[in-house]
């Protein structure tokens, strides 16, 4: 494990994006970041800027108006990045299936790495998902570094 890899490990900054859910999951994410559940134990910090973020937590079914904004946010995030769909409606559409105002689940818009089920999710589940996302993030990081090494060796 190289020094850079070690130093970047286990300190993901998350960006929280609400796209049209019912707020229930948004609240539980906030509860995660506050004293009772305290996701900062894992180095998780909330940021408002997509360019600083490693993990995107998305809540709610993607509404038609928000569709292009969420792709925009996704493209602004630096690699490696992980997208977590929080709650049933982000994962499948949930109770809102069949409503005209949204385009269904999140994976139709951006690639999703972790799904957290539950309507609404419990904070424990969010933390569990974050830890899963952390592993995926480290994996992606390693792949990128390996590719860089390879291309350097080839040159």
């Amino acid at each position: 494990m190289s020094l850079i890899e070690l130093s970047r490990k286990k300190s993901p900054w998350v960006i929280h994006v609400g796209t049209g859910g019912c707020n229930g999951c948004d609240l539980e994410i906030l509860a995660c970041l506050t004293p009772r559940f305290d996701a900062s134990r894992f180095g998780v910090m909330s940021t408002g800027n997509p360019k600083h973020a490693d993990i995107m937590l998305v809540v709610g079914p993607v509404t038609l108006k928000y569709k292009e904004i969420i792709t925009n946010l996704y493209n602004q995030m630096p690699d490696p990045k992980v997208v977590i769909a929080v709650g049933t409606c982000a994962s499948t559409g949930g109770i809102y299936q069949g409503c005209y105002g949204h385009c269904g689940s999140l994976d139709k818009v951006v690639p999703v790495d972790v799904y957290i089920p539950g309507c609404n999710v419990r904070p424990e589940a969010v933390i569990d998902g974050l830890v899963l996302g952390l592993d995926i993030l480290n994996e992606k990081e390693r792949k990128i570094l390996e590719e860089k090494k390879k291309s350097k060796g080839a040159a």
Binding site: T19, G20, T63, K65, C99, Y100, G101, H102
Partner: peptide, 11 residues
């Protein structure tokens, strides 16, 4: 507004 409009009155 309307970023959260899901169309619940129809539903």
């Amino acid at each position: 507004a309307g970023f959260c409009h899901r169309g619940l009155e129809k539903k």
